[in-house]
Design a protein around this nucleic acid. Structure first.
Lengths: 410, 410
DNA sequence: AAAAATCTGTCAAAACTATTGACAAACTAT
DNA sequence: ATAGTTTGTCAATAGTTTTGACAGATTTTT
């Protein structure tokens, strides 16, 4: 009777669990991100030891859990540790950036098994981009010697607002052709696994909350600073998406009504004044005006500057480069000060390419936030760099999909 | 066996319900704010008809539900409607403003039974204020011919950030002496009911979400504009409080680094530039400068102006008054535009004394928001005035307490 | 080194919870 | 009137969870 619902090569089933208790157990083990004992689960879920034991046995039968060594003794018999084994299945984690594709295979437990990344222009439109994504995923699957059916869930982060119900982008500003494109069905032929789509910054926030500096932090704000600027909000432990899925979209907050034109068409958006292109533009201007020999030299050599170049120059002590970096940090900090008043988070995590530009960038953000926010809200408010760095998107996409397939619908 | 747990004069018990299903039924009936049938409950809760029937019988035994007439027929036997009767017990709803005390008795179902309000200065400190609150509550209880033990829960809204775990204020800017004052225990002698404390604006948001324009709206932003300016956030159907309980505290967002000094000590806070005192100050200045004969006349007569006076003058077509009103609306709208980008709500509700100042105030807020926010987020974003007006705080305090006593701890 | 205490994991019996299906009551529509 | 619906209840059945007992494993105490 139980036998006929055992795994036995019948990939994939969705949802993977059979009842709410199993879902809660899996969610807990997944959330822990390290082996847990039956005792820990019993305590956390507030059900009886025998109940946990029984459901754990069933989950082991299903292949979703495996015993893995013993814990240190706590004054009695040592407890056996449980974890989500590689053999439970894999998650395809896909991170689409404005200029890049990153694809990875991770275990259901969130461990990265293999990954591939390459530059790409999202503006090419959904069909060629998704074709390439599927190629890359196929290569990974092949290289790992697995079968597409072993992929239990697919998580996708995309650089635009996602309507959750349908899993489609809505009016993405930088992604012509993607509006309402049915991303989910793109995988339908080759993969039977369910597809979970969300905004890339939301996904990164999820990743950082699950396995980065934000582990266990109930109210956190993740800010991505790259070509674009965006935010992801974890409120009371859950990702908050907003009505149209564009909550946290802080890149187009107006910081200067007389500022430059933004890609969105408005004037003086944060993104247009503090994002990577703005940093480069401002640095190039100062280089051309002969104010910074260091920047001018790099510009001379390479023909163009990058945000990283500017950061490096600032790190070497170039005054003008430092000013450019600081200006970006200050503007972002000003907006963050407002967000702190509104959201009262207990942690702010800064990620994205520009976040690695140097210490003075973070320092300037911090000083702007602390200067302008209410003392109560900033009293214990760390503002730190992302721990996962380039993996945040991949890890988050994996978490998105894993949580999705491990949830019982009800 | 069941008998001994029946009501029978043993007020109060907390929690009022016996299990999760009962809690869910009561929460649903309470949330509906109008009589529901067993069939509706069955559908909404996804349990069997007989289960609902059984638990409803028990809840009627406990006195928490009562049959109340029949619904229209839906093509068959008419269903009997269930509601929370007055006899189930009462909730004490308390709304402490910066300059006022409002106390009410409501049914557990949220209907206002009786209320009292009077001016008071919160700065007098917790002891005299809470003494007066208890006197007023005692008068209401007496006038209604009830007994203090019939009060099942006490909900309190206070104008400062509230740490939920302890139910105490933390560093309230305008409430000297209230920091960490144990509000809950103030009621301990006379009332056995549990006390639920929260920020006044959060409480108003709760009220508007339960029984005002925000009914059924999952993501809403409630903005109170009075002496102070604050916001309450309903995210995914739940009140979001933030880490220290000061989420939504938008009054001290800096809108002009060169602006006037705020009560909080910083410069150019929204509150200091667009709140009632700012409106009055600006209007008086213009009156004194002789730019507005209308305002000057009122000022002459009464010796001072109020925000309502300014609104009335604006309504009569006085140009200067209108400019003052608009300036406040525009500044608030600018901040709201940011909040819209961050929270992507589906509704903004404006309440508080100043919200009644005239149509041009709301019009200016709307125009500022629509001008500055992303089109996607504002496409279907109504910005409306509070429906509950002066009752928002009372209703919200009742909802806070009712939801509290009807929740099963688990 | 033995005994006591403590923690872990499993099992069967008992307690509890929820659903099913039957039925009578109440209503609409033809 | 009669057929078709919906409602509310009941008893039987099915399912879920806890309880309490017990054996295994490990630390602490004597």
């Amino acid at each position: 009777m139980t036998e006929e619902r055992t795994r036995a090569g019948t990939y994939p089933r969705y949802p993977l669990v059979e009842n709410r208790t199993q879902a809660r157990i899996m969610a807990l083990v997944h959330a822990e991100a390290r082996p847990s004992s039956r005792g820990q689960i019993t305590e956390a879920l507030d059900v009886s030891r025998s109940k946990v034991s029984g459901e754990v046995s069933r989950l082991m039968e299903l292949g979703l859990l495996a015993e893995e060594g013993l814990a240190e003794s706590d004054g009695g018999r040592r407890s056996t540790l449980l974890s989500i084994p590689r053999s439970a299945g894999l998650i395809a984690a896909i991170d689409l950036g404005a200029t890049s594709i990153d694809v990875a295979l991770t275990t259901l437990g969130g461990e990265i098994v293999a990954r591939k990344g390459e530059p790409a222009d999202i503006k090419d439109g959904p069909k060629p981009i998704l074709r390439r994504v599927k190629e890359m995923l196929g290569e990974l699957v092949e290289e790992q010697g697995t079968h597409p059916d072993e992929v239990l869930g697919i998580g996708v982060g995309v650089p635009g607002p996602v309507e959750q119900a349908a899993g489609v982008l809505r009016s993405p500003p930088i992604m012509p052709g993607w509006d309402r494109f049915p991303i989910r069905s793109a995988f339908a032929g080759e993969y039977a696994a369910p597809v979970f789509v969300d905004n890339d910054v939301n996904v990164m926030a999820l990743g950082e909350h699950w396995g980065g500096v934000g582990r266990g932090v109930d109210n956190l704000l993740f800010i991505k600073v790259g070509t674009g600027i965006g935010g992801g909000i974890i409120a009371d432990g859950r990702l908050y998406r907003g009505t149209q899925g564009c909550a946290g979209d802080i890149g187009h907050i107006c910081v200067d009504p007389n500022g430059p034109v933004c890609t969105c068409g408005n004037l003086g958006c944060l993104e247009a004044m503090a994002g990577a292109p703005a940093i480069v533009l401002e640095a190039e201007r100062r280089a051309r005006e002969g104010r910074s020999p260091v920047l001018a030299e790099i510009l001379e050599e390479k023909g163009e500057l990058t945000a990283v170049d500017v950061g490096r120059a600032a790190g070497l002590g170039d005054y003008e480069a430092l000013q450019v970096v600081r200006r970006s940090g200050r503007l972002i900090g000003q907006v963050l000060a407002t967000l702190v008043s509104v959201l009262n988070p207990s942690l702010i995590v800064i990620g994205g390419g520009v976040s690695q530009i140097g210490h003075s960038f973070l320092a300037e953000i911090r000083s702007a936030v602390y200067r302008r926010s209410l003392p109560l809200a900033t009293r214990n408010l760390p503002i730190v760099l992302s721990e996962l760095e380039n993996d945040a998107g991949i890890v988050g996409a994996s978490v998105l999909a894993a949580e999705g397939v491990l949830t019982v619908p009800s």
